[in-house]
Amino acid sequence: MLHPVPTLKETPSQTAGPYVHIGMTPNFCDIPGVYATDMGSTMINGEVEGERITLNIRLIDGAGVPLNDGLVEIWQADASGSFVSPTAPNSNSVPAFTGWGRQPANGDGVAAFETIKPGRVAGPDGKPMAPHVSLWIVARGINIGLQTRLYFEDEAEANEGDFVLNKIMDKRRRQTLIARKENAGRYHLDIHLQGEKETVFFDI
């Protein structure tokens, strides 16, 4: 079979700019009354299997300054390793666990998510990948959204065999994706946009 060839070019990216919060988290930036809530602010809407966790994701620039104008979205599997199943368009049922979250970076550059710890998802090699959360990061000064993942410090054994982590040739840089466990149910990951500790970003 012939290789398919795209017939259209992807629309080029432009920066989200300094006011991304107006469009994507208006209630957070004090423009109430248009949307009832900011989309993605709640990921859990009922009884959900799995360990409840908080992810604090801090964005830091190459000068060591936290980004207080950034925005992070996450996408993850549920505790059983499944992504939320399709829902018919225009049906009213909100899934108990959405798998998708969106949070603005606060004054300290931290985007905080209340979610559950994801289960393991099969990787391209058929083996389960380590529990992980996919990240997408935009802000002023970022010309095209940055994609990476968050892994968990307390999953050392699973991390050892993870398909994606093992693609990072420089083992020291694997650590840039692994969130530190702070205490029960709280994880912290610093995303360094550049510098000595620059996070590994993906071309997916």
């Binding site: 620039d61 190459g62 000068a63 300054v65 980004l67 996408w75 993850q76 599997a77 992504f83 998802v121 099969a122 990787g123 391209p124 990948m129 992980h132 996919s134 802000a139 002023r140 000064g141 970022i142 010309n143 940055l146 993942r149 398909f163 994606v164 693609k167 990072i168 840089r173 946009l193 550049q194 620059e198 996070t199 590994v200 970003f201 993906f202 071309d203 997916i204």
Partner: peptide
Amino acid sequence: FRAPKHSLLALGPTKS
């Protein structure tokens, strides 16, 4: 100060 300097890691498709 916001542009990553390293090359991006080419990642094949995964379900995630």
